[in-house]
Amino acid sequence: MIKLTINGKLVQADEGDMLLTVIRREGIDVPSQCHHQAVEPSGACRLCMVEITRQEWDGWSKFVTSCLYPVEDGLIVTTHSAKVIQLRKTIIDLYLARHPNSTEIMRLASEYGITRTTYETVVDGDDCIMCGLCTRICAHMGFSAISTVGRGHDKEIAPPLKEAPTDCTGCLSCANNCPTNFIEFTRDSNSLTIWGRTFETLACSQCGKATITREFAEHLSKTRDIPIAYFEVCDDCHRKETAKTMGRVVNWTREVQA
């Protein structure tokens, strides 16, 4: 058990816990864009910066990305000191210049009282903040269908050779977790298109509702040993079927007892 102080309060944490996790557990709101519990932290967005010090540092302190910093005994953490807020504002200011049309960045900026950037706005700047959360999640799920391509200013997230990715299953986890909602996909009654590839969605054999793509269902069935038939009926119809099956059993016992 590790004991540390966060905003003046003594808190306990487990060895190996990252600061951000403990801060959040305490109900303290520190912004973050590139963090997700499902994957290893990467420290890409810099928004989760906090100020740390120790008794023996004699008033000296430093800034660390809390998502990447493991808890230590005796650490004194401040999440909203004037210096941290100033630093966070500078980072947000830069994001605002680079991604002037991102509603998520605008929301964050307004939360910190920033209405316009003090830097030069990038014309036609897109909403991808290059945090790499999508690629980390995709890799963690075992697909690695997308990655960072290009260099410097031309850096972007894309499938290999920018072609329709063969390893993608259309699970949408990249798009669903993109902090700025940049990853686009389209969906119609029986298909879904993401990263330039179109997938057939698996329609319920009873009502036609689709939950996931056939490719994703087949992948799960194969690698996770789940009968493909499970995926061929949607959750609503599965519940109805369950009621009917149990209903038959109950009715049978009723008749036997009568």
């Binding site: 499902a38 999640i137 698996l202």
Partner: peptide, 12 residues
């Protein structure tokens, strides 16, 4: 990560 795999997989 909201992939919906479990929603699709549960037979009940």
């Amino acid at each position: 990560v909201m992939c919906m795999a479990c929603v699709a997989a549960c037979p009940f």
